[in-house]
């Protein structure tokens, strides 16, 4: 018995729609693309833009002291921070676009950006 005979016309339609859904899922899920750079902000202004392809270590001065940020093998992390709770340090390596570590007490944040802007939230 041929397997093709088991599909009815609507089934072909559903399979076609499913294929389209699969094809659409890839760009939708990965729209942010690959991580290109890390944007370091201090007190709301951009302090530095670090290219993720170059390993670096910078110190960002803030009201509590200096926050150390390191880029290593296309990842970025907060190495040390004078803040009391160390949330941003414990977040560890950030490697995907849109990921962000915020050291609120020292007013420092580091965000990974891709080639395209990934939406964190939409508003108008």
């Amino acid at each position: 018995m041929p397997w093709r005979g088991l599909l009815r016309p609507g089934d072909w339609l559903i399979v076609a729609l499913g294929t389209a859904l699969c094809a659409a899922a890839f760009p939708l899920a990965w729209q942010a693309g690959i991580a290109e750079k890390a944007v370091v902000r201090q007190g709301g202004t951009v302090f530095a833009e670090l290219d993720l392809s170059r390993n670096r270590r910078i110190e960002v001065p803030g009201p509590l002291g200096s926050t150390v940020i390191a880029v290593d093998r296309r990842r970025v992390r907060v190495v040390s921070d004078p803040g009391p709770r160390q949330y941003c340090v414990r977040q560890g390596w950030l490697s995907r676009p849109g990921q962000i570590a915020i050291c609120a007490p020292n007013e420092v944040s580091v965000e990974v950006r891709g080639a395209k802007e990934a939406y964190d939230s939409l508003n108008y």
């Binding site: 088991l6 609507g10 089934d11 559903i14 399979v15 499913g18």
Partner: peptide, 15 residues
């Protein structure tokens, strides 16, 4: 509930 003439188990299964 869709018409059985057009939609069979394969379509149901994928959905």
């Amino acid at each position: 509930r869709l018409p059985a003439r057009a939609f069979g188990p394969v379509g149901w299964s994928v959905c």
